[in-house]
Amino acid sequence: MILQALEEECSGCLACELVCSLVLFKELNPRKAAIRIRGEFPAPGAYRIACCDQCGDCAAACPHQAIYRKASGYWIDPDKCRLPCTLCADACPRDAIFFHADVPHAIKCVSCGQCVRYCPTRALVDKDGKVENMAPVWRNAR
Protein backbone atom coordinates (compact mmCIF):
# COMPACT_ATOMS: atom_id res chain seq x y z
CA MET A 1 0.00 0.00 0.00
CA ILE A 2 1.22 3.50 -0.81
CA LEU A 3 -0.58 6.15 1.19
CA GLN A 4 -1.70 9.22 -0.69
CA ALA A 5 -3.38 12.23 0.88
CA LEU A 6 -6.10 14.16 -0.91
CA GLU A 7 -6.02 17.22 1.30
CA GLU A 8 -8.99 18.92 -0.32
CA GLU A 9 -11.19 16.04 0.85
CA CYS A 10 -10.12 16.10 4.53
CA SER A 11 -12.68 17.22 7.16
CA GLY A 12 -10.16 17.33 10.00
CA CYS A 13 -11.95 14.65 12.04
CA LEU A 14 -8.74 12.91 13.19
CA ALA A 15 -10.19 9.40 12.75
CA CYS A 16 -6.92 8.53 10.99
CA GLU A 17 -4.80 9.67 13.94
CA LEU A 18 -6.98 7.77 16.40
CA VAL A 19 -6.95 4.46 14.54
CA CYS A 20 -3.23 4.84 13.84
CA SER A 21 -2.36 5.15 17.52
CA LEU A 22 -4.48 2.08 18.22
CA VAL A 23 -2.59 0.11 15.59
CA LEU A 24 0.88 1.26 16.64
CA PHE A 25 0.51 1.38 20.42
CA LYS A 26 -2.86 -0.11 21.35
CA GLU A 27 -3.62 3.32 22.76
CA LEU A 28 -5.95 6.19 21.87
CA ASN A 29 -3.62 9.12 21.38
CA PRO A 30 -3.47 11.27 18.24
CA ARG A 31 -0.07 12.54 19.36
CA LYS A 32 1.36 9.06 19.05
CA ALA A 33 0.03 8.62 15.52
CA ALA A 34 2.23 8.36 12.42
CA ILE A 35 -0.02 10.75 10.52
CA ARG A 36 -0.89 14.32 11.41
CA ILE A 37 -3.69 16.67 10.38
CA ARG A 38 -3.19 20.40 10.69
CA GLY A 39 -5.85 23.01 10.00
CA GLU A 40 -5.28 26.31 8.24
CA PHE A 41 -8.09 28.50 9.50
CA PRO A 42 -9.87 30.84 9.17
CA ALA A 43 -8.39 31.33 5.70
CA PRO A 44 -7.96 29.45 3.44
CA GLY A 45 -9.96 26.91 5.42
CA ALA A 46 -7.82 23.93 4.53
CA TYR A 47 -6.26 20.89 6.16
CA ARG A 48 -2.70 19.76 5.60
CA ILE A 49 -1.95 16.07 5.99
CA ALA A 50 1.51 14.88 6.90
CA CYS A 51 1.78 11.20 6.03
CA CYS A 52 4.33 8.71 4.77
CA ASP A 53 4.52 7.34 1.23
CA GLN A 54 7.31 4.88 2.07
CA CYS A 55 9.92 6.67 -0.04
CA GLY A 56 12.72 5.29 2.13
CA ASP A 57 14.68 8.53 2.56
CA CYS A 58 14.50 8.03 6.34
CA ALA A 59 16.07 4.58 6.07
CA ALA A 60 18.89 5.96 3.96
CA ALA A 61 19.51 8.72 6.48
CA CYS A 62 19.42 6.59 9.63
CA PRO A 63 22.97 6.11 10.95
CA HIS A 64 21.86 3.20 13.16
CA GLN A 65 20.21 1.07 10.49
CA ALA A 66 17.07 1.24 12.61
CA ILE A 67 14.72 1.63 9.63
CA TYR A 68 14.42 -1.47 7.51
CA ARG A 69 12.51 -2.55 4.45
CA LYS A 70 9.50 -4.86 4.84
CA ALA A 71 7.10 -5.99 2.16
CA SER A 72 4.64 -3.26 3.16
CA GLY A 73 7.15 -0.42 3.52
CA TYR A 74 9.81 0.84 5.90
CA TRP A 75 9.55 -0.03 9.58
CA ILE A 76 11.41 1.26 12.60
CA ASP A 77 13.23 -1.20 14.85
CA PRO A 78 12.67 0.33 18.30
CA ASP A 79 15.70 -1.46 19.70
CA LYS A 80 18.06 0.15 17.22
CA CYS A 81 16.54 3.62 17.16
CA ARG A 82 18.71 6.05 19.14
CA LEU A 83 16.94 9.21 20.24
CA PRO A 84 17.61 12.10 20.43
CA CYS A 85 19.01 11.44 16.96
CA THR A 86 16.36 12.75 14.59
CA LEU A 87 18.15 12.46 11.27
CA CYS A 88 15.25 10.43 9.87
CA ALA A 89 12.86 13.30 10.52
CA ASP A 90 15.28 15.77 9.00
CA ALA A 91 15.49 13.61 5.87
CA CYS A 92 11.76 13.04 5.54
CA PRO A 93 10.39 15.09 2.64
CA ARG A 94 6.84 14.86 4.04
CA ASP A 95 7.40 15.67 7.74
CA ALA A 96 5.93 12.28 8.49
CA ILE A 97 8.26 11.11 11.29
CA PHE A 98 6.91 11.91 14.74
CA PHE A 99 8.07 11.92 18.35
CA HIS A 100 6.35 11.69 21.71
CA ALA A 101 7.91 12.25 25.12
CA ASP A 102 6.72 8.83 26.34
CA VAL A 103 7.90 6.90 23.27
CA PRO A 104 11.63 6.04 23.24
CA HIS A 105 11.86 5.83 19.44
CA ALA A 106 10.74 7.67 16.33
CA ILE A 107 7.17 7.03 15.25
CA LYS A 108 6.61 6.05 11.64
CA CYS A 109 3.84 4.73 9.42
CA VAL A 110 3.80 0.93 8.96
CA SER A 111 1.56 1.08 5.93
CA CYS A 112 -1.25 -0.90 7.54
CA GLY A 113 -3.99 0.88 5.62
CA GLN A 114 -6.36 1.38 8.57
CA CYS A 115 -6.49 5.14 8.03
CA VAL A 116 -7.49 4.58 4.43
CA ARG A 117 -10.20 2.12 5.38
CA TYR A 118 -11.76 4.37 8.02
CA CYS A 119 -11.29 7.88 6.65
CA PRO A 120 -14.90 9.13 6.54
CA THR A 121 -14.25 11.47 3.62
CA ARG A 122 -11.90 9.30 1.55
CA ALA A 123 -9.14 11.87 1.94
CA LEU A 124 -6.61 9.06 2.32
CA VAL A 125 -6.27 6.56 -0.48
CA ASP A 126 -4.02 3.68 -1.45
CA LYS A 127 -2.13 4.55 -4.62
CA ASP A 128 -1.74 0.84 -5.28
CA GLY A 129 -5.49 0.39 -5.09
CA LYS A 130 -5.22 -2.58 -2.73
CA VAL A 131 -6.75 -1.06 0.40
CA GLU A 132 -10.37 -0.15 0.02
CA ASN A 133 -12.03 3.03 1.33
CA MET A 134 -15.00 1.94 3.43
CA ALA A 135 -16.72 5.34 3.48
CA PRO A 136 -19.37 6.10 0.89
CA VAL A 137 -18.84 8.60 -1.91
CA TRP A 138 -20.93 11.72 -1.45
CA ARG A 139 -18.60 14.65 -2.03
CA ASN A 140 -19.58 15.28 -5.61
CA ALA A 141 -23.12 16.11 -4.51
CA ARG A 142 -24.18 19.58 -5.58
Binding site: S11, G12, C13, A46, Y47, P120, T121
Partner: peptide, 12 residues
Protein backbone atom coordinates in the same frame (compact mmCIF):
# COMPACT_ATOMS: atom_id res chain seq x y z
CA UNK B 1 -15.23 25.68 0.81
CA UNK B 2 -15.08 22.30 2.53
CA UNK B 3 -16.86 19.86 4.79
CA UNK B 4 -15.57 20.11 8.35
CA UNK B 5 -15.96 17.55 11.13
CA UNK B 6 -15.51 17.19 14.87
CA UNK B 7 -13.45 14.42 16.45
CA UNK B 8 -14.05 11.05 14.78
CA UNK B 9 -16.97 12.41 12.79
CA UNK B 10 -18.33 10.03 10.16
CA UNK B 11 -20.82 12.56 8.79
CA UNK B 12 -19.21 16.02 8.79
Amino acid sequence: VRDKGCTACAIP
